[in-house]
Design a protein around this nucleic acid. Structure first.
Length: 571
RNA sequence: GCGCCCAUGGCUCAGCUGGAUAGAGCAACGGACUUCUAAUCCGUAGGUCAGAGGUUCGAAUCCUCUUGGGCGUACCA
């Protein structure tokens, strides 16, 4: 089904062509959702921006556009307003029919170029360090963006670019060889690795030579030293299996796990190519790429003086690999804001190397706790296991209170969906660029603009449907939805415009647009629900109202699904 | 020093890349459960959008400067 905006744009274009046949600057013709319902459904400021070109006052242009709009069955009226806006009011019948069609038809996003592959790099934990809350943002935001891109119709590959080849291995090997607690390692390998990592940091502060040793050990890994390679492999296996448990728990799936080690063998060739193309030159013993002065970027080291590769090298290798193995549309990177400069450098180098594709760094704000940035070394992290447990138990206590008669396993499932939903939503519902100071209270809030609130509305609709079924009423998806009140009109319009908000979310990589939209929809539904009887209405009215409620529920479910949040049938 | 991000009611945040009277949620206050789940709903109160200039029909949004915060700045990722 065509988006409403696209439908309307076509009409508008026809109208403009009629009054100004030579006009071609269609980029100017922007249709926006109305800022207030009293201004209708959509508005355009075209008449104002075109005023200079057409050499006429905005209001005159607006008037002639309105009269030139071809006959159609979607528009109730169009009005000139304020300094020259044109406000468009859609017919109730058209909006209602659009809502009804959402039950059987998919939205058509063919006006967006989705050709080729989109690779999205997110989560990407550092192997051998335990994941903590700090890793949650990239994971949750990345997963949501992946879902959104897929919904639009992109062919998406979710890539977990594991940090499995970096400095931490050198440090860990040094620590492992010196301070390993064998018993603990066998019992709980992850926590022993964490202990060793922290221990190394503490020791290195007293003895800076240790860092040098660590670098040497890392180099040995990268050069294929057997003993070190075996240790490396062990560390990777241990942490990766732990990470995968977390992903499974969160309902997050990756298509590829091409970590840095995967690209290692490609790196020398990347370096060769950069040197060949005159991009990388030697400086102070290292191999470095310099940038044009106007870029305002500091030089980027692609090979250390000891011959080892780094983060930049592996990212460049990744890009070259993508360029050669996929028909790339976009390469997306979801990492925190502090890496912005790194990606500017990498993208600039890749472009100069001729690895053509669209690069987007999708940054998010840094997560802190009590004002301090979370660091494994500082020991101020919140363990994911604790966070998840807390989320579930809070969910459990509410379910227990509201629905004690449900079977235990269902209560458990609901508790998890609600608790984890609240957690994910607290992050996804705000603009990703803001820095967040983690708060238990906020992360696990169930009231107001939260996932449980949205899930609750969904569950209420399911409950109505169950009650209807008990009464022997069957849902007829072909029957008409009749808009009988302002609130119903408002709800229907919100549902019909939902895909446009997904489109916007995809364009700007901002899941919070979706959260905003469904929250607004659900608030309206709350008003409707509390003021309008459904099951006690006359048969025809009842059918129409149930369908509208069902459309709300389906939109909420779709929206929450795009955020990676589940919708239980009861709660 | 240079660069990036940020500043919106008491608190936490939206604000769809310049639109009409700046919106929510918490918290506060007053109302609504013999009625489809009160994890809800209705209402009241609360703002010089950090400050000053500029751009224009029109600025929280764009430009410049100032103040105050966060971050990054060649061998970490």
């Amino acid at each position: 089904m065509e988006l409403l905006r696209i439908r309307l744009e076509k009409l508008l274009k026809e109208a403009v062509k009629t009054i100004e046949p030579d006009f071609e600057d269609w980029g100017r013709l922007v249709l926006q959702p109305a800022t207030d319902e009293k201004f209708g459904d959509y508005q355009t400021n075209f008449a104002m921006t075109a005023s200079k070109i057409f050499r006429q006052p905005p209001k005159i242009i607006a008037e002639s556009i309105i009269t030139a709009i071809p006959a159609n069955d979607i528009l109730e009226k169009a009005e000139v307003a304020g300094p020259g806006f044109i406000n468009f009011f859609l017919k109730n019948s058209f909006v209602a029919e659009t809502v009804r069609k959402t039950f059987s038809e998919k939205w058509d996003f063919s006006h967006i170029n989705t050709e080729g592959t989109v690779v999205i790099d997110y989560s990407s934990p550092n192997i051998a360090k335990p994941m903590h809350v700090g890793h949650l943002r990239t994971t949750i935001i990345g997963d949501s963006i992946k879902r959104i891109m897929k919904f639009i119709g992109y062919n998406v590959i979710a890539d977990n670019h594991l940090g499995d080849w970096g400095t931490q291995f050198g440090k860990l090997i040094v620590a492992y060889n010196r301070w390993l607690d064998k018993e603990n390692f066998e019992k709980d390998p992850i926590s022993e690795l964490e202990r060793l990592y922290i221990k190394f940091g503490d020791e290195a502060e007293k003895d800076p030579d240790l860092d040098e040793l660590a670098r040497a050990e890392l180099k040995k890994v990268q050069d294929g030293d057997e003993a070190n390679l075996a240790l490396w492999k062990k560390f990777v296996e241990i942490t990766l299996s732990e990470c995968k448990k977390i992903y499974e728990y969160l309902g997050i799936k990756f298509d590829t796990y091409y970590g840095e080690s995967f690209y290692h063998k490609l790196m020398p060739k990347v370096i060769d190519e950069l040197v060949e193309k005159g991009l990388a030159v030697e400086s102070e013993g290292a191999l470095v790429v310099f940038f044009d002065e106007k870029e305002n970027l500091h030089p980027c080291i692609v090979r250390k003086k000891d011959g080892a590769f780094l983060y930049a090298t592996s990212d460049l290798a990744t890009i070259k690999f993508k360029y050669e193995n996929y028909k790339m549309n976009k390469a997306l990177y979801v990492t925190d804001d502090r890496q912005a400069v790194h990606f500017k450098q990498i993208f600039n180098i890749a472009e100069r190397a001729g690895w053509k594709m669209e690069f987007v760094h999708i940054p998010f704000g840094v997560l802190s706790f009590n004002g301090e940035i979370l660091k494994t070394r500082a020991g101020n992290t919140i363990k994911l296991a604790d966070l998840f447990k807390e989320a579930e138990s809070k969910g459990e206590s509410v379910v227990e209170e509201k629905n004690p008669e449900l079977p235990e396993d269902e209560k458990k499932k609901i508790a998890k969906a609600v608790g984890i939903g609240a957690l994910k939503y607290s992050d996804l519902s705000q603009n990703r660029t803001s820095n967040i100071d983690f708060s238990w209270e906020k992360a696990l809030s169930f009231d107001g603009n939260t996932a449980p609130y949205l899930q609750y509305s969904y569950a209420r609709v399911q409950s109505i449907k169950r009650k209807a079924a008990e009464k022997g009423i069957t849902l007829d998806f072909n029957s008409e939805i009749k808009i009988e009140s302002d609130i119903e009109r408002s709800i229907a319009a919100s549902i019909a415009k939902f895909p446009e908000c997904v489109e916007k979310a995809a364009e700007l990589y901002k899941p919070n647009f979706i959260a905003d939209h469904i929250f607004d929809l659900v608030q309206k539904f709350g008003t409707f629900y509390n003021s309008t009887p459904i099951l006690k209405a006359e048969p025809e009215q009842m059918q129409s109202r149930i369908l509208l409620a069902e459309a709300v529920a389906q939109t909420v479910r779709t929206g929450l699904d795009l955020l990676g949040i589940e919708t239980p049938e009861k709660m």
